[in-house]
């Protein structure tokens, strides 16, 4: 094996051991914080499949999160099914929705695709707010997990960790396969990809479904953890913004970019909200603006190229200004 591969493998191993041992901190608040980070790592990485690799900037990925959460709630509360059934069903439900909606919507390009997905998410939120089975705006309760408080925190942490590992592993395998190359070809030049014999409709739809599947899984764990969900929070545009910002901040179209973005943005936000109770979102906005202007290719690009400092920032600006 090449030294680079070994380095990466060792890095992954260390990361996994650290993440696995994290609940030993024995502080429920911190474990919950870790769970949140992992959730956003899943969301940003799943967004990366359609937005980063395929080049279709979905602005409605939260719809899969909401569908995952509501599938779980309805199956467990109204259907009396165990979480072990609801969890995969949430992923599959979201993936199925991605196929149905993706077939027409993925024909649109650029801004139009972005706005269409945003519209789909908002329409879905409005629908859930009005449906009988979802109990509208009142929200829906889920059965409580029958464990001690401490073990509940552990359970949700490890479920989210498993989902995150699954997402990254699937993305890695996808990149090794022909499927991954098809997606990147579509991103670079869809017409050329089409002439090269790639069935672009199938590939794009599959990527959208994959993105939806993992987002749905995260929604499922989130719903069970919250034990009560409402349409407003689980279909919020803010959630979509956050996953995209994380993916872009870390570096989209890179395997570990979104993970890096999720960890750093969550830690920075937490730090800011500790020190600036009211104004932390203000700083978050400023951070997004600065990150976009100075590192549009993501922080991971800066790290892997070992290019730090003013020269790198200025080069980015020179490339994109008029």
């Amino acid at each position: 094996m090449k030294t680079k591969t070994i380095k990466i493998l060792v890095g992954c191993g260390i990361g996994l051991v650290l993440a696995g041992a994290f609940p030993l901190v024995d502080n429920n608040f911190v474990i919950r914080f870790g769970t949140d980070i992992l959730m956003f790592a899943v969301l940003a990485s799943a967004w990366n499949i359609i937005g980063g690799y395929t080049g279709y900037a979905s602005f409605g990925n939260v719809v899969f999160f909401g569908i995952g959460a509501y599938t779980t709630a309805i199956l467990m509360e109204k259907g009396g099914l165990p979480f072990a059934v609801a969890y995969p069903a949430a992923g599959l439900g979201a993936a199925l929705f991605a196929v149905i909606i993706g077939l027409p919507v993925l024909r649109l390009r650029g801004h139009y695709f972005a706005i269409a997905t945003l519209g789909v998410a908002e329409a879905m939120k409005a629908l859930v707010q009005n449906l009988e089975i979802t109990e509208g705006n009142a929200g829906i309760y889920l059965p409580m997990l029958d464990l001690s408080v401490r073990h509940q925190y552990w359970f949700f942490y490890y479920m989210m960790l498993a989902t995150a590992v699954l997402t990254l592993l699937a993305t890695h395998l996808m990149l090794k396969a022909k499927f991954g190359y098809s997606l990147i070809a579509i991103r670079e030049n869809e017409q050329a990809a089409d002439s090269a014999g790639i069935n672009t409709t199938v590939a794009k739809t599959a990527a959208f479904a994959m993105s939806g599947f993992f987002t749905g899984l995260a929604g499922s764990v989130y719903a069970y953890q919250q034990a009560f969900i409402q349409p407003g929070p689980v279909f919020s545009v803010g959630m979509t913004v956050k996953m995209i910002v994380m993916a872009v901040f870390g570096g989209m179209g890179r395997l570990f970019g979104p993970l890096f973005g999720a960890v750093s943005i969550e830690v920075i936000s937490e730090f800011l909200s500790d020190y600036f109770l009211v104004a932390h979102s203000l700083f978050f906005g400023a951070l997004v603006i600065l990150a976009i202007v100075f590192t549009p290719k993501g922080v991971i690009d800066m790290v892997t190229r070992r290019r730090f400092g003013i020269a790198y920032f200025l080069q980015n600006i020179r490339e994109h200004r008029i």
Partner: peptide, 14 residues
């Protein structure tokens, strides 16, 4: 698009 999002977050919270 994302830059505009940043501006939106900034203005709203200001």
């Amino acid at each position: 698009l994302i830059l505009a999002f940043g501006i939106e977050i900034f203005i709203n919270n200001l």
